[in-house]
Nucleic acid binder design. Structure first.
Length: 854
DNA sequence: AGCACGCCGACT
DNA sequence: GTCGGCGTGCTC
């Protein structure tokens, strides 16, 4: 007898064994999606292994059978199964949940229990049973969930089993069919050649147009195409079918989010000598890692039982440290091209699809028809189709956000994480576990697949740079900004009559220094009598930009702050009733918004506390900056880019496109404008206020601030016009500001590393966070204290001298959407030792390698 | 996740 | 005395 070890998608930690029925005996493979009975429910499961005997500890139990195969092809490879187990161990999450990361939503339907009334005349004793029977008589058969709802109670199992026992009802656990299905489109083909149609037969002009079109193609055409080309309608096509001239059919069509977009194919660019040195190292690694090319048959047999051990543990990881504009993307594109030539696939991760349209454009244009985009806002159908195409080996490059890592590509040769320092690479509550870090997962995939990882950034995460310094990963450096080919730059400069600041680099490329940064001390501005939002320097800078027809970016670092409403007499501030956070005034709808939960309310005209009518709006939002700009420079055209103006994902691209096309002189925005944009006409970047975000109780606050300022500073002067950066602050000596002003990454790194070492923070120890949430303030605190007690007890018992606990304490955001929040932070070489097997109730989340502790 | 089992207070 | 609350442990 053969047994399948199955992982089920619930919060159980273990796997379960089922015997393989005869009809599946030689068909069942690792990675197959199956239907099994689990407890009383019907559940989907993944076959993670196949054994010829049960493990000794359960040798004498009665196993249930594998009931059905839900997909004829394995839904994941052995590599993906192994990755799932690794995720479960590292992030302390149920293995089923980890494996389900690799599957598209909707691949299985939901599990339920259907109840059928067999004896309509039955009159059972017991009020609960009688009630159930009368409800079934009244409403007809239904699911157990519906019945519980109608009964307004949960405890009906004993009554149900009694009814089933006496033959009154039947309970049937079912697994619904998948909600995601292949999409089919109608097609038509010609059965008869035009010249075979007899002269006497009456054929309308619409029918002739269809016949002539179809006659030109020896295969079926999509009906939609036929209608579009001929102008005929479906009734015309139907008429042709009825006359036997045409056969209609259907084909499976892939839903593709890139399908309706045109990309102009581009060629590879010539590398500078600096890039060549980097590329040589990457290419050698790719060649070193290259496995023999597998045929489709070999790939299939690699996922069959018994050959699992073939997975090698190798792979190479690099940090590609390059300032903005240093040509990192061209290295990525060269590497992708190289692995595609090896018949392997590549994954290219970006922080957010909506904020990096230019990057996606470049990848899609370089590899036409080989790229798919994977991210959270795809429809279920698009995700499902992309997933199937990937599994079938029809996609070579996946571009996407962190979840794209789990696309079931058969032979991953390269993973790129662009802007690797970005916090969005960490999956964290309130999402579902596992709370993985895409950087660590990518490294694991690369090991399992004998592939290559490139982590790219101008401002690498402390942990990443530390690892590069200690030779745990390779270090590649691109210190110069490239402005383009010498001849092209020269021509452009002559055309606009500008003396360039370019320097001839080695070879034919030209480079340019990073823009000068001026730090303005706003305390001095106040002393000088300037109480406005813009310093004199920034005003002059904006004036110059307007006069010369150039462009500027104004950044507001609002992390952890907002403009709020307060009473001048008693100091009362309007707070969200569900989050206890100050509410933000929005000019557009004249309402107060809560940025945590989205709650909206009317601003008060009188103070609810003291009755005063001296209500004031305080603090600067993007709207206020916009208003102040228009006041100071009446003719200036301003465009605002923030979460409010870009409500839908595609709005980002539109706003950006309008700015690129010079429909505005100044763009005002928050963090998002600092991401990977290439805006050659921007000659001035102003940071209106660098201070918010510096004082946050988060050990990464300084790092984040430095990264943001450095990134946004890199936006200036990318064209031949040059540029400058002005940072306004009340603490000009702050390391995050001072080092950013010097474009001094290593200086900041060295400074910050001392802090981290002193406090035992990452990269010296790993940090985990236990987050406790509840709608009851007393419960959260009590639960957090209970967990902390248990952890301290365990530390003593296990003698974990390197493990320290911070808290329990209320989180910085003490309440979000009615939930009070407390947390416990754990610093340790390996927090999983302490946290393994910890009992977690509802509302408790373990976040390993936590990125954000607010 | 469900569901059973088991121990406690509050009802006919 | 039973009904129903929920804390605890198990599902191959």
């Amino acid at each position: 007898m053969l047994y399948a070890e199955v992982a089920i998608n619930t919060v159980v930690e273990q796997t379960y064994h089922y015997h393989i029925p005869e009809k599946l005996e030689h068909r069942l493979l690792k990675g197959h999606l199956v239907r099994v009975s689990f407890g009383t429910a019907m559940q989907p499961g993944i076959v993670v292994d196949i054994h010829d005997a049960l493990p000794p500890d359960i040798a004498d139990i009665q196993t249930k059978p594998i009931l059905a195969l839900l997909d004829p092809d394995p839904v994941m490879t052995v590599m993906h199964i192994e990755l799932g187990f690794w995720l479960a161990k590292r992030y302390l999450a149920p293995v089923g949940q980890c494996l389900w990361l690799m599957l598209p939503p909707g691949i299985t339907g939901s599990s339920s229990v259907e109840i059928t009334l067999l004896d309509h005349e039955a009159d059972p004793g017991g009020s609960v049973q009688a009630q159930i029977v009368s409800l079934l008589r009244e409403h007809g058969d239904m699911s157990r969930k519906q019945l519980e709802k109608l009964m307004k109670r949960k405890r009906i199992s004993s009554a149900l089993s009694a009814l089933e026992e006496s033959g009154v009802i039947e309970q049937d656990a079912v697994l619904a069919p998948p909600t995601a299905r292949p999409k089919t489109v109608r097609t038509a083909r010609l059965l008869i050649m035009p010249d075979q149609i007899a002269a006497g037969q009456r054929v309308s002009s619409g029918q002739w147009r269809i016949i002539n079109l179809l006659a030109r193609f020896p295969y079926p055409l999509d009906a939609s195409l036929i209608y579009e080309v001929t102008g005929a309608s479906s009734s015309t096509l139907k008429a042709l079918e009825d006359r036997g001239f045409v056969a209609r059919g259907e084909r499976i069509a892939y839903r593709d989010s890139l399908a309706d977009r045109d990309f102009i194919p581009t060629e590879r660019l010539e590398l500078t000598q600096e890039q060549v040195r980097v590329w040589d190292v990457v290419r050698d690694a790719l060649n070193e890692a290259r496995k023999p090319i597998l045929t489709r048959h070999q790939i299939k047999s690699a996922i069959s039982p018994g050959t699992a051990k073939a997975v090698r543990q190798k792979g190479t990881a690099f940090l590609l440290h390059g300032v903005t504009g240093s040509g990192k993307t061209e290295i990525y594109l060269h590497a992708i091209e190289h692995v595609l030539a090896q018949a392997r696939q590549a994954i290219f991760l970006v922080p957010e699809i909506a904020l990096t349209p230019q990057t996606i454009q470049r990848v899609a244009a370089r590899f036409p028809d080989q790229v798919a985009v994977v991210h959270g806002s795809l429809s279920t159908g698009e995700r499902y189709d992309t997933w199937r195409r990937a599994r079938n080996g029809e996609i070579n490059v996946v571009v996407g956000t962190r979840s794209a890592l789990f696309t079931p590509l058969p032979d991953i040769g390269l993973i790129i994480l662009d802007e690797e320092h970005d916090p969005s690479y960490k999956h964290a509550p309130p999402f579902n576990p596992p709370y993985y870090d895409a950087r660590a997962v990518a490294e694991r995939i690369v090991q399992l697949n004998d592939a290559t990882l490139i982590l790219g950034s101008a401002t690498p995460a402390m942990e990443t740079f530390y690892r590069a310094q200690h030779n745990e990963i390779g270090y590649l450096h691109l210190p110069s900004r490239i402005m383009g080919h010498r001849n092209r730059v020269q021509l452009q400069a002559e055309r606009i009559g500008q003396v360039t600041r370019y320097k001839a680099a080695e070879g034919s490329a030209m480079t340019i220094d990073l823009p000068p940064v001026q730090v303005v001390d706003m305390r001095e501005e106040l002393k000088g009598g300037n109480r406005g939002m813009f310093s004199r320097a920034l005003q002059e800078g904006l004036q110059t930009v307007v006069e010369n027809g150039q462009q500027a970016i104004l950044l507001l670092n609002r992390r952890g702050t907002a403009s709020y409403v307060f009473c001048r007499d008693c100091g009362y501030t309007v707070e969200c009733s569900r989050c206890d956070a100050p509410m933000t005034y929005h000019q557009a709808d004249e309402l107060l918004h809560c940025h945590r939960c989205g709650y909206q309310t009317m601003p008060p005209t009188r103070c609810p506390n003291c009755g005063s009518d001296r209500i004031r709006y305080f603090g600067a939002g993007t709207q206020q900056v916009e208003a102040e700009l228009s006041r100071t420079f009446p003719d200036i055209r301003v465009i605002r880019w923030d979460a409010d103006t870009a409500m839908q994902p595609d709005m980002h691209e539109e706003i950006l496109a309008r700015f690129v096309q010079q429909e505005a002189d100044v763009m005002v925005g928050t963090q998002m404008i600092a991401k990977g944009l290439d805006l050659p006409l921007v000659t001035l970047v102003g940071v209106v206020s660098a201070d918010p975000g510096l004082a946050l109780p988060d050990f990464r606050a300084d790092e984040r601030a430095f990264q943001l300022l450095t990134q946004v500073a890199g936006r200036a002067g990318r064209g031949i016009l040059g540029g400058k950066v002005i940072i306004q602050t009340y603490q000009p000596q702050h390391p995050s500001i001072a080092y950013a002003a010097q474009h001094d990454y290593t200086g900041f790194y060295a400074h910050e590393l001392l802090n981290r070492r002193e406090l035992g923070y990452p990269p010296f120890r790993r940090m985990a966070r236990i987050l406790v949430q509840s709608t009851h303030p007393v419960n959260v605190q009590r639960e957090a204290e209970r967990i902390a007690d248990e952890l301290n007890h365990r530390i003593a018992k296990l003698d974990l001298s390197d493990t320290t606990i911070i808290g329990p304490a209320p989180c910085f955001y003490t309440r979000i959407d009615k939930h009070y929040r407390w947390h416990i932070l754990i610093r340790s070489q390996d927090p999983t030792v302490l946290l393994r097997g910890l009992r977690l109730r509802e509302g408790i989340y373990v976040d390993m390698d936590v990125q954000d502790v607010l």
